[in-house]
Amino acid sequence: MSNRRNKLNWLNTYAVVYMVFLYAPVVLLPIFAFNSSTIIAFPLSGFTTEWFGVLWTTDALHSAVRNSLLVAVSAATISTVLGLFAARAVARYSFPLERGIMGLIMLPLVLPEIIIAVALLIVLIQLGLSLSLWTVVLGHVLICTPFSIAVLGSAFRGLDPSMEEASFDLGETRWGTFRRVTFPLVLPGVISSLLITFTISLDEFIIAFFLTGTDVTLPVYIWSQMRFPAKLPSIMALGTILLGLTVALLILAEIFRRRSATRRGLDASTTEGLV
């Protein structure tokens, strides 16, 4: 018994140390954001909100934020719509080459991003398209869609097929069934897919770096500012704001995912293994 206790203590300690490792950089972010020194190092010199103030007056930042929001909203919407179709198709029908096609769609999930960026760049140049925010959207849709499919796929798998049949049986059309039954039931999945893809797109750097034209997105802007040590504290402030927003979005996504799980759980009672 004491042996087991030792092992548990050891594991507990390890878990705590590991979490410290995971959170170390994240915790530093707000610390330096409020530090009054321009040098990003210890010891801290004093508390200030000056760096947040700087953010309000930087026009280039504002346009980068606007660009990023545009890209992230578009990419999230498009990839979620695509994901909706793909997940629904996979959940309900089996079609020839299903595995192959799905494999291709999911491939960006495991490809190094730089490869996707390079590939897209070549394609775009060949097609004679000029680089713009829309080319970034295209790239982001490519990497976001697999996540959408994964999230929505589990929402669809948890959906009892007789739900749709019941609606159809009660006289509804296919579209009416989708509107009145299918969509409301997978809505939590749709929302969490939107939030996740939005977050991914907002944070993505390499593809945006390669594919953007003169309009830069937020990560590209941050990258460009990192060369100037004087700008670093305000980047820390910016990062803190982003961190807060992302965590809020993630908590929202998680709440919706759970709500969808309970909804389904009440019906199928076995939702284990869906994680």
Partner: peptide, 10 residues
């Protein structure tokens, strides 16, 4: 959670 914060900043 840490994974979702800006990769660049991390």
């Amino acid at each position: 959670v840490p994974f979702w914060t800006s990769y660049l900043l991390r």
